[in-house]
Design a protein around this nucleic acid. Structure first.
Lengths: 196, 196
DNA sequence: GATAAAAACTAATAATCGTTAGTTTTACTG
DNA sequence: CAGTAAAACTAACGATTATTAGTTTTTATC
């Protein structure tokens, strides 16, 4: 009955994907039914199949959009000519911003990529690994040049990447602090530590 | 046919819960069927119901065991008479150790508590909130006494708690570093920061 | 070795899932 | 306003789910 109205910057397929991402984040991929996605769009479930080919396809679209975004951003920063510590800071800030602005998709890519069907699951796993290796390499370089505390670079990457996921909790708990302060606080903590 | 063998420190019910926790962590609560849990124990699915009353009950047991453990540990540390910064460090180390030693249950409590049935879901949410408030209060106290960098204490807590979840990635990726070094690296990063 | 309790089994339930087939309604194009 | 394509609909499919009922096997006690 009710039609999914396409707009200039959002096709019908994209509208469905966004609605799916929102529900996947709230309830998880496996706990979200096609009927629920359809209901959120004011439509019956089989109608969705005029625009998408499967539930899995939506998850793929979400995960790889996020993954591509991170990889291409990293490459851009790597070549921007800024100082080492500034590069690290820019990468961290990028993570936080994506977490704030594209929360649904970012969250789903992080939590539900394990439900990707098998050629894609392994491919996404490799993407994550490649990203962490790049980041870890950058940190190792900075440690050599004494620009950074000597740590195991792999552990440092895992910890930093997990830390920015703290934005997740911020999203759900009242938001008593604005996005800019949130970003500054996280960056300060990761670069300078707790102890003074 | 095959019986679930109880041992001294692990009743049949606990054995089932552990097996369930392992599978919940690997595949997620909703993606894990009772048949899979039974198969992991060498038994048919309906046999499980001689020991547990539902799938949800297992999730409850897992979540609240973890939650209680964290809260009681925090109270113990709070009263142990050590210095402020040492308390913070001890709490962080406790998180990391639980993450290493009770990985399955910790992971499930963190990721799947949203599937708790409703009186318990809200209760667990309150437990998390209470824990973060305690931790946040401790940090705020340290900031007042200049023992710690001035930050928004709530953001600091969210970031620290998320950071220790980085142990998660360590679990899955080859473990080329031992648990003790892992702990030292994370503690150093959180207390002193990346920049030198 | 008989008896009773514990714990396994088989069979089946109703509910829900993603998806397909076939049809009808809506919206655009001439 | 006729014709066509897009997008909605209803009905139903086979598969899977957690769980129950009822029964048989195993284990422990005397």
């Amino acid at each position: 009955m009710a039609k999914i109205i396409p707009t200039l910057n959002s096709t019908r397929k994209e509208k469905i994907t966004y609605a799916a991402a929102a529900l996947f984040r709230q309830n998880g991929y496996r706990a979200t039914s096609m009927r629920e996605i359809a209901e959120a769009l004011g439509v019956e479930a089989p109608s969705l199949y005029n625009h998408i080919s499967s539930k899995q396809e939506m998850l793929e679209a979400i995960c790889f959009r996020v993954g591509d975004s991170f990889l291409s951003n990293f490459d851009r920063i790597e070549k921007d000519g800024s100082s080492f510590i500034k590069k690290v800071e820019t990468i961290i800030r990028f993570h936080i911003r994506i977490m704030i602005e594209d929360y649904d998709m970012m969250y789903v890519a992080e939590h539900d990529w394990r439900y990707l069907p098998e050629p894609h699951h392994e491919e996404f796993g490799r993407m994550r690994k490649r990203y962490r290796a790049k980041f870890s390499g950058l940190l190792a370089e900075g440690m050599k040049g004494k620009k950074i505390i000597p740590l195991d670079p792999n552990v440092a990457v895992l910890t930093v990447l997990s830390a920015v996921n703290g934005v997740d909790s911020w999203h759900r708990s009242g938001k008593k602090i604005d996005a800019a302060s949130l970003e500054e606080n996280i960056v300060a903590l990761l670069l300078r530590g707790l102890a003074s």
